[in-house]
Simulated assay, not measured.
Amino acid sequence: MRVIAEGLVTEDTPPSLIGGRERESGRVVFPCPPGERYEPVALSRTGTLWSYTIQRYRPKSPPYAGPEAFRPWAVAYVELPGEVIVESRLTDVAFEDIRIGMPLELTMIPLDPEAADPVLIPAFRPTGAAA
């Protein structure tokens, strides 16, 4: 698995996002900052949709490194219970079926599905009755 950035997800199957727990306060952040202040922790693979928007235009390059032919996607804020709210893409759901509070699980998707050797990015998809 070739992930878009090092230290973003665990090497487990299936992977988890790697957050950082502040050693002094216990506060969890994502991604895990470098240095001694935070210890890396595997975050929950499941959460709920806290908020979202639809990305309808191609982001500036750099930093965007996705396909030239742009297709809109859903950008979600996913609440991982008792941990942190993370920003991620939503996948495997039609825009009109997205609902605040829907249960989600982590998956990995290609940034550019048509690339010969695509890099993977974390995304969340509906689970349970929402799937």
Rank of each mutant, 00 (worst) to 15 (best):
V28I: 11
A130I: 06
V78Q: 03
E24T: 07
G26P: 07
A74P: 06
G82S: 08
R125K: 13
I4M: 15
G128P: 09
T127V: 14
E6K: 01
G128H: 14
A42D: 01
G7Q: 01
S16H: 09
L80G: 06
E6P: 01
E24I: 03
T107Y: 09
P31G: 04
V78T: 04
A129C: 11
E87W: 12
P72Y: 05
V78C: 02
P15V: 00
F30S: 03
S51Y: 12
E6Q: 05
D92L: 10
L43T: 00
V3F: 14
R125P: 12
F70I: 10
T53I: 05
A130Q: 06
A116E: 15
I109F: 03
A65H: 10
R125N: 05
G101T: 04
R2A: 15
E39T: 06
Y52L: 11
E96A: 04
I98Y: 00
Y38N: 00
A130W: 09
R71S: 14
Y64L: 11
R23D: 04
V84Q: 10
I98W: 02
A129G: 10
P62G: 12
Y77W: 14
V93R: 03
S51E: 13
A130S: 08
F95A: 04
L120H: 08
R21I: 07
A131N: 13
I100D: 11
A130E: 07
D92G: 08
E24M: 05
E105Q: 15
A116I: 13
A116L: 15
G101I: 02
P67Y: 00
E11N: 11
D112E: 14
T91I: 08
G7Y: 03
A76K: 06
D92S: 12
E114P: 05
P110M: 13
L111C: 14
D92W: 06
Y38T: 03
K60L: 14
P31Q: 06
W73Y: 12
S25I: 01
T48D: 12
L104V: 08
R71F: 12
P126K: 14
R125D: 08
A42C: 07
E36K: 07
A131D: 12
L49A: 03
V3P: 01
F30M: 02
Y64F: 13
E105W: 07
G82P: 02
G20E: 06
P103I: 13
A5H: 05
V93E: 07
D12M: 06
G26W: 12
E96W: 07
R56I: 04
D112N: 15
Y77C: 14
S16R: 03
I109D: 01
I18K: 00
G66D: 13
F95D: 07
R45W: 04
P126H: 07
A115W: 14
A69C: 09
R125E: 08
A69Y: 08
D97Y: 01
